[in-house]
Design a protein around this nucleic acid. Structure first.
Lengths: 196, 196
DNA sequence: GTCTATACTTCGATAGAC
DNA sequence: GTCTATCGAAGTATAGAC
């Protein structure tokens, strides 16, 4: 272990580095987040990266911590929407967010320490969303869904994320029909809620 | 442009490099596929990588070409199965294949030249699968599905790929219920085919 | 508390030896 | 036709200057 000192968590430079790292990761993938490229983006010297983040892995961990915090806050706001189910979809399908999350998954898939943390968050998000569906049904006095809430969330997550990823990549085959079907379901669900 | 010469496409070393590159990419991600790590895996000298593949990008293009060829061949075999729909699912949900494909998507998402090629293949696969669903329905004399074939394929791709990715990562929440639902659908579909 | 001079490692790529 | 000696650029990380 080293006796080096590191920058405070309230530093302006530190914040700038985290912001730049996120943009860089979204645009060019996690592998492009190197001390040199990152510093260049933030208009700082490469060595500063290692002052605020002893290793690159600790930078990634900090980045993920911020993402987790933001995601949790967004989920809290789902109920303020007129159509909470649609709000949940919009949140999950948010393209910049989806791209970033796939980068973290990629990172996790080959860095042991990171993997457990990302997986834990994935499981937790799934559980939170299942609870949200339950709450939506209670509030709207719905007792029936075409499928169990847990499967509904797996379906929502899989579709929203995959469609966003494909759209970002430039794959569009079948998307129009998919959105029609999804839209129809949302309308039916909102309608059933209004009737109840 | 350089006047260097490059190895033939039938070389044994070349094949070994492509195989090793694929394993490395699956295990550690595309960013870990460096000339040095790759050569070490294949038991060869790093410089040999550049003899067979002038640039690393050309290595990735060759790798993707092999994947495309294999995928096409697998799709041709779907009809030999007793339950072609399930065979299509199994093929799409194949974990090593899914992991590898996400690596190519990641690579594509920030390398312009690569992006178009991966997107084109994605669109083509979607179209081929939609045709397969049509053919299955014809052969089984089915006229009705709960959703249009194009949406069925988007659904199948999204679910199969996302469930495989999550399982690989260690996310399991909701998976058991999801598989129950999917299994039930396959049984119903096969049953309807038997009745017809 | 903040930043930089510097070291050492790994990378992609080429020219030239076998 | 196959492989290696070698180079310059980019990577992470540390010790020490302000």
């Amino acid at each position: 272990m080293s006796k080096r000192r590191y920058g405070s968590e309230t530093s302006k430079s530190r914040e700038m580095l985290l912001d730049a790292a996120e943009t860089l990761m979204r645009e060019s993938g996690y592998a492009a987040v190197t001390s040199r490229k990152l510093a260049s983006r933030a208009g700082l010297k490469p060595q500063l990266v290692h002052y605020y983040f002893p290793t690159m892995d600790e930078l990634f961990i900090e980045m993920f911590r911020r993402v987790k915090k933001r995601t949790m806050e967004s989920l809290d706001n789902v109920f303020k929407a007129d159509d909470p189910l649609r709000a949940l979809w919009d949140l999950t399908a948010n393209r910049p967010g989806v791209i970033l999350s796939y980068e973290f998954v990629g990172l996790a898939n080959h860095r042991k320490e990171f993997r457990a943390e990302v997986a834990e968050f994935g499981d937790r998000m799934r559980a939170v969303k299942i609870n949200i569906i339950h709450r939506i049904m209670q509030e709207r006095e719905l007792t029936e869904l075409p499928f169990a809430p847990s499967f509904a969330v797996v379906l929502l997550d899989s579709l929203a994320r995959n469609l966003a990823l494909e759209a970002e990549l430039g794959v569009h085959a079948g998307h129009a029909e998919a959105f029609e079907n999804i839209e129809r379901f949302f309308r039916q669900f909102a309608g059933a809620a209004a009737d109840a």
